[in-house]
Amino acid sequence: MILVTGATGAVGREVAGLLAAAGPVRVLARRPERLTVRGPGVEVVAGEYGDRGALDRALKGVTSVFLVTNSPTEPDDERVATASAEAGVRHLVKLSMMAVEEPGAEDLITRVQRRNEQTIRESGVPWTFVRPRTFMSNTLSWAPGIRSSGVVRALYGDAPVACVDPRDVAAVAVHVLTGAGHEGRAYAVSGPEAISAREQTAQLARELGRPLRFEELDRKTARTALLARYPAPVAEAFLESAERQSAGAKAAVVPTVGELTGAAARPFRTWAADHRDAFGELKP
């Protein structure tokens, strides 16, 4: 039995769906009502990482775990790693981030993920780290502006990023969870091209069949918008990450998706075509 956490998120949802299509899977969910993966082969345990009773129930009889960190301020990974070791889990696959292996990345979120990886290494449970670059699905945050005014607003419009489709990250994770010989390895995962926000906007415009305008935010305006949505340390981490992207630190393309899954990584235009409905019609 494989346990999937984060199954309402971009990658965890896809991992749970792929596993459920092949056999039984167990899901630990804080809000089971938000799960989109259902069926006779999907066992749901309601609970969160801080609820040790729920965590123990979810881990009973489990051989492998797909772990998604829930919070940068809570010891989520330590809780899961400790409980996994005590439950006899044989493989812990953690969704991390590519930045952890980049020495110039020192923002809060990256530091937390580095610490989480070290915690898992020290837990005694055989591990694999899946380290994706920025998700293509992050552009869904542009949807309100696209629907209301046909405008995308973002920092550093010409800064390239080798963003990756969450479906490809999930395919790598499932390959690792169900295959052999991946213990003790870390896999960086990117899309097939480095693309800027301005280029993404143009591709979305083509898919939607209507013009979109890109407006580059200055750092002060971006910071204000982030602080309206996130705690200050998290907002600052996003700003630091954007600065690294503007310096070209996120443009490298790696071949992991094709090497592990045998299928080419999806470009942004494919993701955009598959998700055009999420951006809706322009409001009058």
Results as ranks from 00 to 15, higher is better:
residue 172 V to E: 00
residue 212 L to P: 12
residue 244 R to P: 08
residue 245 Q to G: 15
residue 126 P to A: 11
residue 206 R to W: 05
residue 24 P to T: 01
residue 155 L to S: 11
residue 37 V to M: 06
residue 134 T to E: 12
residue 275 H to W: 07
residue 5 T to H: 04
residue 232 A to D: 14
residue 218 D to Y: 00
residue 50 G to A: 07
residue 115 R to Y: 11
residue 114 R to N: 03
residue 208 L to W: 10
residue 57 R to H: 08
residue 182 H to T: 07
residue 165 D to R: 01
residue 97 M to P: 03
residue 91 H to A: 13
residue 12 G to E: 02
residue 37 V to H: 10
residue 130 V to P: 10
residue 202 A to G: 08
residue 6 G to D: 11
residue 281 E to I: 02
residue 246 S to W: 02
residue 88 G to I: 00
residue 137 S to A: 15
residue 31 R to Y: 04
residue 253 V to I: 09
residue 204 L to N: 04
residue 203 Q to A: 14
residue 3 L to T: 05
residue 137 S to Q: 09
residue 58 A to F: 04
residue 119 T to R: 06
residue 188 A to I: 00
residue 258 G to K: 12
residue 72 P to H: 01
residue 265 A to R: 04
residue 101 E to W: 10
residue 226 L to R: 14
residue 223 R to E: 08
residue 25 V to W: 06
residue 109 I to C: 08
residue 201 T to Y: 13
residue 1 M to V: 15
residue 119 T to Q: 09
residue 44 V to S: 11
residue 26 R to D: 01
residue 21 A to P: 05
residue 145 G to N: 01
residue 111 R to M: 08
residue 269 R to C: 12
residue 52 R to M: 09
residue 193 E to I: 04
residue 121 R to N: 01
residue 40 P to I: 15
residue 18 L to P: 15
residue 91 H to D: 12
residue 84 S to R: 05
residue 83 A to R: 01
residue 187 Y to L: 05
residue 168 D to Q: 06
residue 38 R to L: 07
residue 191 G to D: 02
residue 50 G to W: 04
residue 3 L to F: 10
residue 168 D to Y: 02
residue 185 R to C: 09
residue 53 G to C: 10
residue 101 E to P: 04
residue 199 E to W: 00
residue 264 A to V: 07
residue 95 L to K: 00
residue 283 K to Y: 11
residue 283 K to G: 03
residue 6 G to W: 13
residue 31 R to H: 11
residue 34 R to S: 10
